[in-house]
C-alpha cells in the first residue's frame, strides 16, 4: 500500500496487493455508504422496510417499518439516526457519543409520532478490513449500538455525551424487539 501524505478526511492513495489502485472516495463518504449497506442488510434480514431515507456525510436517517404494505397503518415503526465512526469511542459500559445540544434536544424531544433511536456504527480504522468476501460469505466488519434518549433531561452545556450500552447491539433480533415493543405501545 502506498504511503503518501493524506489531507483531512482523506486516506492516502491506496493500491491492492497486485498494484491495482483503489477509488478516491473520501473517508467520510465511505462511512456514509457503508452505513447504508449496513442499514439495508439489517432491514432485509429482518424482513422490514426502509423509508424516508436521507443521508449525508454526517448521518443517515431513515424509518424502519415492520409491516411492508403502506395501505395499513402500523405503529411498529422506528425512526433511526445512524452515525458511523472509526474513532475509539467504545468503553466498558458502551459507546460514548457526543451530541451537539441542538441535536441532543431533537433526539430527546418526546413530541413525535414515531419513536426514534440513535445508532452508532463502529468500523475499523483500516478500510481494507471493512469487507471480507469468500466464496461462501460476505462479512461486513463493524458493530452497531443503539439508544433512545426520548424524555431525557436537558443539558446546560453546548453538547451532551450519551452512552449507547454495550448490550444494545443493533442487529436483526434487537431491531425486531424494538419494533415489537413500540407496536405494543411501549418504548424502544
Amino acid at each position: 500500500m502506498a504511503t503518501e501524505p493524506a489531507g483531512p478526511n482523506q486516506w492516502p492513495p491506496m493500491r491492492t496487493a497486485t498494484g491495482v489502485p483503489y477509488g478516491t472516495l473520501h473517508a467520510s463518504e465511505c462511512m456514509q455508504a457503508f452505513s447504508l449497506a449496513f442499514t439495508y442488510a439489517i432491514a432485509a434480514a429482518a424482513r422490514c422496510t426502509i423509508s424516508e431515507l436521507r443521508s449525508d456525510v454526517e448521518a443517515v436517517d431513515y424509518t424502519v417499518r415492520q409491516v411492508a404494505g403502506h395501505r395499513r397503518y402500523s405503529s411498529s415503526v422506528v425512526d433511526v439516526q445512524m452515525k458511523c465512526t472509526s474513532q475509539d469511542v467504545l468503553r466498558d459500559d458502551g459507546v460514548h457519543w457526543r451530541l451537539p445540544r441542538g441535536h441532543y434536544d431533537a433526539l430527546r424531544n418526546p413530541k413525535s409520532y414515531n419513536r426514534k433511536i440513535l445508532v452508532v456504527l463502529l468500523v475499523p480504522d483500516d478500510v481494507t478490513q471493512w469487507l471480507t468476501t469468500t466464496p461462501e460469505h460476505m462479512i461486513l466488519a463493524g458493530s452497531a449500538f443503539w439508544t433512545c434518549v426520548e424524555g431525557h433531561e436537558a443539558t446546560t452545556g453546548s453538547s451532551k455525551t450519551v452512552v449507547l450500552p454495550r448490550h444494545n447491539n443493533y442487529d436483526v433480533e434487537q431491531l425486531l424487539g424494538i419494533l415489537h415493543r413500540i407496536g405494543n405501545g411501549g418504548r424502544p
Binding site: H70, R71, R72, S75, D79, A106, K111, Y113
Partner: peptide
C-alpha cells in the same frame, strides 16, 4: 386500509406523518 392522521403541528415529525397519510 388504515392510516394515522396527525393534528399537532408542533410534533417533530408532523410533516412526514401527514405525508404518510396523504400517500395512503
Amino acid at each position: 386500509a388504515s392510516l394515522m392522521l396527525p393534528f399537532d403541528r408542533t410534533y417533530r415529525d408532523f410533516v412526514p406523518r401527514l405525508r404518510d397519510a396523504l400517500g395512503t
